[in-house]
Structures are given as C-alpha cells and as structure tokens.
Design a protein around this nucleic acid. Structure first.
Length: 151
DNA sequence: CGTTTGACTACGC
DNA sequence: CGCGTAGCCAAAC
C-alpha cells in the first residue's frame, strides 16, 4: 500500500502462489518472496528491491481481508526472523501459535532461526514453469572449510 | 478533509 | 547486536 503498487490485483496472486509452496515447519521472508517475482512492467529492478518486500507485506495483509485458508500466511515473516504484525495483536498471537504448532521454535528476541527453518524455495522446475526467479537464500551458505580453521 | 498509519529491508553507528 | 534512517504513497480514520 505504501509506495503505490500499480497493480495489486495482478501482483498479489503471484505472491500467494509462492506462499502456498512453503512447507509446514519452514518460513520465508517478505524479501525472499519478492526476490522470486520479476519486477512488474515499468518498475526498475533497483526500485523493486526496495518496494517488493513491502508489496509482499501488503499481499499478506490482503489475505486477512479475503480470508483464504489455502494461503499459509503465517509462514511469512521479516528478515530478522520475527513476526511483523503488531506485538500482542490477535493476528500476531495466532501467527506465532501456528508456527509453534508446526514445530518452529522462537528464541531470544522473539525470533526464529532462519538458518534452521528458513525455506530453500520452491522446486527449480516449479519456479521455471511459473516464470519466477531463484530465491535469495535465507540460510547462510555452508562454509567450505572455514569453521575449523587451523590444522 | 487533514492526519495517521502501515505484514520491509539494507546499511550505518 | 540493538537502534535509527531513508525510501516517499494510499487508504483508513
């Protein structure tokens, strides 16, 4: 809603189709979802990097209005691993409850460990078929040989 | 009809 | 690692 999404009616369904792919027990982020969607006509990629995540948030907000039970909106959180809904709100409590029911644990700072429960993204073939881009990884790339330095 | 209010994120202290 | 800032619009109040 902020930063005028020129066409939410086209954009939102793209977001929802991706969100439906997130498996139980895992989470995605607004930014990661946006990273899979090609910039709409007329939106330059640098601008979309900035606007996309917000529009994804708007799309999630729209779910609460249409109440579509096929969209696991609770599996979309912010880049910090936290819930972006107003703390204590009915929706925020429900979101955390649903995630915990799926085995997603919240640690210090009311956040989840994206490196553990962060989604790797849809199948490559699914992405290609739907014309989406590969997702930005949420998990840190496996260190080739860094963790045990010397010796 | 003016104000308020956002389901964000990268980046710099 | 927590906190503040920029970006900069439309709907809901």
């Amino acid at each position: 809603m902020r930063y005028d999404n020129p066409d939410p009616d086209s954009f939102n369904p793209l977001v929802w189709s991706i969100v439906r792919q997130i498996p139980a027990g895992q989470v995605s982020t607004y930014g990661q979802i946006a990273s899979m969607i090609p910039p709409p006509d007329g939106i330059e990629p640098p601008d979309f990097d900035r606007l996309g995540p917000r529009w994804v948030g708007d799309a999630m907000n729209a779910v609460s209005r249409i109440d579509d039970p096929t969209i696991p909106w609770h599996r979309v959180i912010n880049a910090k691993g936290g819930i972006s809904l107003p703390p204590g709100s009915k929706s925020a409590v429900l979101q955390r409850q649903r995630l915990e029911d799926e085995g997603v644990l919240f640690g210090k700072g009311e956040t989840v460990d994206l490196n553990t429960v962060g989604w790797e993204g849809p199948d490559a073939s699914w992405l290609r078929y739907h014309g989406f881009n590969p997702p930005r990884p949420l998990r840190k790339p496996p260190e080739a040989g860094g963790q045990l330095p010397l010796f």
